[in-house]
Design a binder for these strands. Structure first.
Lengths: 282, 282
DNA sequence: GCATTTCTTGTAAATTTTTTACATAATTCA
DNA sequence: TGAATTATGTAAAAAATTTACAAGAAATGC
């Protein structure tokens, strides 16, 4: 019924439109973000046509009326915030680049949310719950993610460790028991040393969960691949959003495990909390 | 400005609402998908209240009026298909909590984006650019943030270190030169050991940038406070979103520094990139 | 426990916004 | 070029939203 991509429909319908309706179409495509806050009179004026023409345009693109049209447009724009150009330039003000950093991060997260393979997540959660030991391997920016993950899972009463040193990884990998889990984290998906460690894990009978971009060697090599295709900012600084994307996925795994472990955990966490409070001041 | 996750806002605001407004809130949360196609009369009737009450409800949750409210709701639903009526399947609960993690993270980020004190960010960037050394201190979950930050700033050709050990922090703090910068990261804002380290830094003439919730001792004690009030998930696990919020702020700082350092950096980063590629496979 | 004040909520009116009806202008085709 | 057709705008009607206000409920003080 409702076209998923309204702007697409508008482009497609364009040739069938009358001259003044086309003016409306062009204006909408040029400034879709502005349109969703406009009244019909504003849009009519700005497009240089009369109000009924706007209504006729809305009907022509398959909507029931103007309100209906705005709603559909708003929905489309909500799912692709990238409509507003996100790229930090030299001349950006503090406010601008702050917004851009947040917006692009949010954008990455929303896209990732909808592209995650749920069955792999479930498999990963199940594997983690069954493991005696859970370890996190990562280098560079992924090392910080690994340590964060370790901290988080440790709190969930899971024996976990994080290694960012290939020697330590190798040593630990060879001592794993069948069923133990290693989560290999890589933003590039192509780190040779990590692949080597993964090989050792698999030889020990361990299960490797890979957090890496799809189609990369690490995603292929993992027993359970959680593919994370965060749009890399190739500019000034590397793994920015992708790192946060990885953390979010770790969070999802942690929640999944927490849910599975159930209420036994609650008591433990409360205890932990009271222990921590002695380190804090009022 | 506009709440990203309207339903979240509605839940949060619920306690402040009057009885009949709450009826509207409950109805909206129960059937959000239906509401976006309703007129104000329909919603009023179905919720069992009068039309002005609906308008008052819309205002109470931060919208300008009913239309505005519907628009915001539509936008959220467009980006959270989980709200759509989907038959309960085996994968559904996974889907649900996955969405919750992402949605609440996004929510936190957007709220933070609009509440950051820009002038403090600018002051922080300026301080970092002037420093000979930049160090990151944090414990627990904030330790991972500190290491991530260290990694990021190191790439920007800034002599940086990260310590999550109070002894190392103290030793390093006493050896700082005036003008050097320490970024103290705390999700609680009340870690005693961190406050002690900060005191030492200040005695050495160093500048302390504090990343902590507003109104906390660490925020007060810092020379430049960047207040981060991420809604803590009191549930199963602690610092979840707040940790990502801290990372995002670090990103903003890094961008700010990168921008100030200007193009001289570009060449350096390219060099770095080619160096890294030897560690990766094709 | 009653009177007074304050806060809630609905009714009805006013305003705003959208849509329809119709007339005029523009275009097409013979 | 002129009749027919289509396109567009004007103005009025309808619909929807918002405001003003009054009645009712709850809370507070005496």
């Amino acid at each position: 019924m409702k076209p998923a991509q309204l702007t697409q429909t508008i482009s497609d319908t364009m040739i069938d439109l009358r001259k003044s309706e086309r003016k409306v179409a062009e204006f909408v495509l040029k400034e879709p973000l502005g349109v969703i806050r406009m009244r019909i009179v504003d849009l009519a004026q700005q497009a240089g046509v009369s109000e009924p023409t706007v209504v006729r345009f809305c009907r022509a693109v398959g909507c029931h009326g103007f309100q209906d049209f705005k709603l559909a447009l708003a929905q489309q724009l909500a799912s692709s915030p990238s409509y507003g150009q996100i790229a930090v330039t030299d001349t950006d003000s503090t406010r601008e680049y702050t917004h851009k950093v947040f917006d692009s991060t949010v954008d990455t997260l929303l896209k990732l949310r909808d592209s995650l393979a749920l069955e792999n997540l479930e498999a990963a959660v199940a594997a983690i719950c069954n493991a005696q030991r859970v370890e996190f391997y990562g280098f560079g920016a992924s090392a910080a993610v690994a340590f964060d993950a370790q901290h988080k899972f440790f709190r969930l009463q899971i024996t976990s460790a994080a290694y960012s040193d290939p020697h330590l990884q190798n040593m630990s990998a060879t001592s794993l028991q069948p069923g133990d889990v290693v989560i290999a984290i890589s933003q590039s998906g192509r780190t040779q040393a990590l692949l080597d460690s993964m090989e050792l894990v698999k030889r020990s009978g361990g299960i490797v969960i890979g957090l890496a971009p799809s189609g990369t060697p690490i995603a292929h090599s993992a027993n359970i691949a959680i593919e994370i295709d965060a749009k890399e900012d190739i500019q000034i600084y590397t793994p920015l959003s992708s790192r946060i994307a990885h953390l979010a996925v770790i969070d999802v795994l942690a929640i999944g495990v927490a849910q599975k472990k159930g209420p036994q955990l609650q008591a433990h966490l409360q205890q932990l909390q009271s222990g921590l409070s002695s380190l804090r001041i009022d």
